[in-house]
Design a protein around this nucleic acid. Structure first.
Lengths: 339, 339
DNA sequence: TCCAATCAGTTAATCGATTAACCAGAACAT
DNA sequence: ATGTTCTGGTTAATCGATTAACTGATTGGA
């Protein structure tokens, strides 16, 4: 005999009450209408039977599924994604929500389909995550579904969003260098037109200008933000007559190239050259020799915040969309020394 | 005015039919009962209104939610996890399913809760994934929910499962060495008691024994499968009088240590020493100099297979559980040369 | 011509909860 | 004595689909 799982009606019958009473007793709703002993009887019956509410039925009635759609443009490829998902997952679970994941593989036409698939399932809200900090338009398919953007901002500020405080992080690592007495700080970056590049570059420019230095003298760009690009650009900066005493790298991968270039030129890090970077990638920054000082991308925290914000919006759909800058903590390691 | 999304009843009214007819027309059920023109009229009305079925209501009636629970013991930390999820995601989506993710952070007491949370949501089946190949007991909370194990096997074979064909992969990389004329093949491995270690080690033993060599002469173990361990063990093997001409590493991280040891001893890879490994980790194997020949862990393929198997079991719950060995393709690179 | 089968639908029950509306009895105030 | 207010529930409607059972015309075969 296949015993199907107990329904609320079974619990009610076992406790000798109506399903309405059972529902209210278990959910604590209905105010004072349920007596203490009745409540206890229902609870005991539920425990006895191993009752688990059918959230599909509940969802149909209440229009709340306690599921959040997570739309990512590439779940797998970057190690960052995992942390973002994890932050979102943890915050969701704490509030009794689960994540319904969907990956668009970066294909924009997929995004509309993904959103529709989630909406059919009556998710309570949507998290839209991008792998890199960027500015996007909220897809119109979203309609009135509450949404929070993760690692990207909406062009018109119509949706809540959380992005890393790139400016703060940049100022942070530059402050490390300044504290060690560095002035001539080079910057190696990518030519790719991404938000992160723009902010880090502008902030660094500002910093140098404040010292009366000409940033353009100390800037080098590579086509791509990879090791190779870091190597090439560092070579250019470090073979100049008045080479910088420190380099701020766009990211850790480029920093790897800078390390190699310094090595080949017989420059010792941090004694002859200090290096700071961005991203604080797990398998890179702490593993380099010497370990690299880097501003961390707060993916876990952003994931968390996004869910918390989404839950806030579920409570109050008319609240103003919030744009949050998540601080990028500085991981201080061994790649910075006094001039 | 807030316009709520159209219901099936709205479509039916617009097409001038009953909801039963509308349902059958849209789903193609009910055999010949629906005339071609009626069907067309209903379809047109649905398209016109932008009708999207409410899958919560449907799920309540049909007891099928088209959602698969994915229980992972650590979604984020390993880069492998992403590929596994992706494989599962892609196969699921192709079949109209979505993944409901839940992370237990490796805590076994969490697992029961996770399964219960998924069952409350009436998922159609569960994927249980572990980050490392291991043998586990299927949690009793699973009950009669269809389940497929990912990267682990059930101790009693009661559930379908898919794991990497470690033996095949090991034979594969060893064959690379054999083809280059290597006989004295050392093995550096970890002392951690994991399934992968056991199989790779046993297979290597077998291979050497077939050549009449004594494996124990050529084996070195480290406490952990990290770079450090690879370095230490390689140092031991390579400073012997009759050092091996090739080394098979337990994984890529240990191979990094082997590379460093060889470098320090003035041995050039692959000319003085050939190296093969396992895992084919994205950020390691292809990036080493020379690039490392390694047997790949087929996480994407396993994720896919697991979903396909789960869907098969949904169709036929009484089918025998299948234990699948997923081949580990060999990534041939530049770390092997003729003796 | 008449009964059976086929066609093309409709009606109504159902999935398992939540919740608005109602109700009987006890306590209380006037 | 009688209306009012609590207490502690119950009844029945509802969420939005699917589907078993039924029905009223046609068509077809003998």
């Amino acid at each position: 005999m296949v015993t199907r799982p107990p329904r609320l009606a079974d619990v009610a019958k076992a406790a000798g009450v109506s399903t309405a009473t059972a529902s209210m007793a278990l959910n604590g709703t209905g105010g004072t209408r349920i007596g203490a002993d009745t409540r206890a009887r229902v609870r005991a019956a539920a425990a006895e039977l191993g009752y688990r509410p059918n959230t599909v039925a509940r969802g149909l009635r209440t229009r709340r599924t306690h599921m959040i759609g997570f739309v990512g443009d590439d779940v797998a490829t970057t190690p960052f994604a995992g942390q973002m998902i994890r932050g979102a997952h943890d915050a969701a679970r704490k509030a009794g929500f689960l994540l319904l994941m969907i990956d668009t593989t970066g294909d924009p036409s997929e995004t509309g389909e993904a959103i529709a698939a989630l909406q059919e399932r009556q998710i309570d809200g949507i998290l839209m995550a991008t792998m890199y900090h960027q500015v996007i338009d909220v897809p119109e398919e979203i309609g009135s579904t509450p949404v929070v953007l993760l690692d990207s901002r909406s062009a018109d500020g119509s949706a809540s969003s959380v992005v890393p405080d790139e400016r703060g992080g940049t100022l942070g690592v530059l402050a490390e260098l300044a504290a060690a007495g560095h002035r001539r700080i080079g910057h190696v970056t990518t030519a790719e037109d991404v938000e992160a590049r723009r902010i880090r570059l502008d902030t660094w420019r500002e910093h140098l200008t404040a010292y009366g230095l000409d940033p353009d003298e100390l800037l080098a760009e590579a086509p791509e933000a990879m090791t190779r690009g870091g190597y090439d650009t560092a070579m250019r900066l470090l073979t100049r007559l008045d080479r910088p005493t420190a380099i701020f790298c766009f990211n850790d991968r480029m920093a790897m190239g800078v390390y190699r270039a310094a090595d080949e030129l017989g420059l010792s890090i941090p004694d002859d050259l200090s290096v700071v970077s961005y991203d604080d990638q797990e398998l890179i920054a702490p593993e380099l020799a010497p370990a690299l000082t880097s501003a961390a991308l707060p993916h876990y925290a952003m994931g968390r915040w996004a869910v918390e914000e989404l839950l806030r919006r579920l409570d109050d759909p008319d609240a103003e969309p919030a744009g949050h800058l998540m601080p990028c903590p500085i991981s201080r390691r061994d790649s910075v020394a006094p001039v």
